[in-house]
Amino acid sequence: MARRWTAGLWGCTSAVLLWLGGCTSTHLQQPPSPAQTPAKPGAASSPSASTQALQTSSAPNAKDYRKDAAKHLYLQQKDKVFKGRLPPMLYAIGVLNVDIDRQGQIQALQWTRAPRHAPEVMAEIERMVHAAAPFPAPMRLGKVTYTDVWLWDKSGRFQLDTLTEGQD
């Protein structure tokens, strides 16, 4: 019986995520220029940071680029990633579009489904995305807009739908 309930939960979750894909987007302001943004300590000088981060992406489409971007975000935000299976009730779910230029810089963020009941989550997600820039340069695409679903736990940690470990 528990398996039937879990399968039903996944089916409902999938239906909600498909429905959310049709929601309208909210455009956000342009991020501050690199001159206005303080540099991350050790970002340029640390050889281990540069070898761990994916510098370029050879993804042929936005769906494949999304995997590279998710891996990049996980590397940049290791302490904020929820380890293991997420609990059945999440604090917030958000769907965010990210426009990336040919150098991997963020051009714009648009919420397709914003978790407006949790504005602190929206602000933290935006902060993390900006802090992770530059993203892997989309070599084959030139520029790309990719979409990912942010699954946010009440602990303040997240998983991206692209790399999720599932839900209890």
Rank of each mutant, 00 (worst) to 15 (best):
Y74I: 08
H72W: 09
F82H: 10
Q76F: 00
K78L: 10
Q76K: 14
P87F: 02
A53S: 11
A59H: 04
D68P: 12
L75Q: 10
D79L: 14
S57Q: 01
A59L: 05
L54P: 01
A59T: 03
K71S: 12
R66L: 07
K83D: 13
D64W: 06
P87D: 02
K83R: 15
K78W: 04
A70H: 03
A69P: 09
K71P: 05
R66D: 13
D79K: 15
T56R: 01
Y65Q: 15
F82M: 06
L54V: 07
P87S: 04
D68F: 07
A69H: 06
D79S: 15
K83H: 12
P88C: 04
A70Y: 03
S57V: 00
K71C: 05
S58G: 10
L75K: 08
K67A: 09
S58L: 10
K71I: 07
D68Q: 12
R66H: 02
Q76P: 02
A53W: 11
K83P: 09
D68G: 10
D64A: 14
N61T: 08
K83Y: 04
Y74N: 10
K67G: 02
L86Q: 06
K63G: 12
T56L: 01
S58V: 03
N61S: 15
R85Y: 00
L86P: 05
K83C: 10
R66E: 15
K80V: 08
F82W: 13
K71V: 09
Q77M: 11
K63I: 09
R66I: 00
K78T: 08
P87G: 03
A69S: 14
L73W: 05
A69W: 12
R66P: 02
Q77G: 05
Y65D: 14
P60C: 00
H72D: 04
P87Q: 04
A53M: 13
A69K: 05
R85C: 03
D68L: 11
K63S: 14
Q76S: 10
S58H: 10
H72R: 07
N61K: 11
D68E: 12
